[in-house]
Amino acid sequence: MIKLHPRLQLDPDAASERRWPVTGHPLTLKVTAAWHALALVGCATAPEMWPWWLAGTAVNHATVTIAGLWPRSTLLGPNWTCLPAIPRNANAIALTLDDGPDPVVTPQVLDLLDAYQVRATFFLIGERARRYPTLTREIVARGHSVENHSQKHVHTFSVTGMGALSREINAAQRTLTELTGERPAFFRAPAGLRNVLLEPVLQKFDLRLAAWTRRGFDTRERDPEVVAQRLLRDLAPRDILLLHDGDAATTDDGQPVLLSVLPRVIDAAKKQGLHFVTLREAF
């Protein structure tokens, strides 16, 4: 049993030492709230103009919905789509792996990363981490970072209210902190989809949203060459790469695509003079 530092035993939303500044509600949320208030007042004072109030509300909803369906968007709040532009990241890239841990794939990934001396960032699903606690601890023991990818990874995450978002994120935060002894610093939304209410919840739990620069679509693409080319096309310093050790697609011979892709990506990156860092190392 890992003995947690006393600070880590606190409620994650009550941590006294924050990693991220509290920036307040994002502008998009403020504008949305202001418009709804204005529309309500308008309907009460000028009911004959209701089509205009309705149209404005529809435009607002469409805008925030589209922003939430665009994983790399920053319209709904801060979002890491590449590593910070600081000197130590000049030749750095980050490898991130989602949806684990997987009892078959993740151990093989860890062995492969050890062989190449590469550290990665694992965005784990809380329920899966709880199911495989030893494997979850092994990820951290081998020098990698574990971050928050929600507790259940539900497909309705992006249409969830603030209370449910808080419960889902807090549950994963508690699970991963308990299992690893380290409080996650980053959050990645299921499928990268979110809504305008997410950023205030992330600030409450001292988390920063992290998306990616490029992804391989390796949960549905079975050809390792195609996945690798998607990641390597125009590969540049400060890129964040997305792959999956959970729910990974398999090749025609039944092997996880990820295991064929990783060596190609790592070799190509090193030939470009790039080195891999975890997201925590990058900030």
Rank of each mutant, 00 (worst) to 15 (best):
L40H: 10
F276M: 04
I93M: 03
R238L: 00
A211R: 08
T45N: 02
A164T: 14
T156F: 00
D13S: 13
L75M: 13
G246T: 05
L258F: 07
G126M: 04
L176G: 01
D245N: 07
E178D: 15
D111H: 12
T57E: 11
L197M: 12
P87T: 15
R174S: 02
W52F: 13
L110C: 14
R222N: 00
R230T: 08
R119W: 00
R222S: 07
H275P: 00
A164L: 05
R280L: 08
G100D: 13
L232C: 05
F205H: 12
A14G: 09
A58V: 15
A14C: 14
R119V: 09
T63F: 14
A44I: 15
R183N: 00
V227D: 01
L69Y: 13
K270Y: 04
G126A: 09
E199I: 00
C82T: 15
G42I: 02
L241W: 05
L231V: 11
I2V: 15
W35V: 10
H144E: 07
I86T: 14
V265W: 02
L198T: 06
L179H: 04
L193V: 10
R238I: 10
G273I: 13
L198H: 04
A14F: 12
L27T: 15
T121I: 12
M49H: 11
F123G: 07
G42N: 06
R142K: 04
K152P: 03
I169P: 06
F276C: 04
L10P: 01
A282H: 01
F205G: 03
R188V: 06
V41K: 07
R214M: 07
L241M: 03
A189R: 07
R130A: 15
G143T: 08
R18C: 10
L243T: 13
P78Y: 08
T121D: 10
S145W: 03
T63D: 14
T175P: 05
K30M: 13
E225G: 12
R208T: 12
P190F: 02
D111S: 13
F187T: 11
L69R: 10
L95K: 11
T156L: 09
Q203Y: 03
L165M: 01
L258P: 02
H153F: 00
K3V: 15
D13G: 04
A58Q: 12
H153E: 02
G143E: 02
V196K: 04
S73G: 09
A115V: 13
R215D: 10
R88K: 12
T28H: 00
V118P: 05
A185G: 11
T81Y: 06
R167L: 09
L202S: 02
V118G: 02
E178Y: 09
I125K: 00
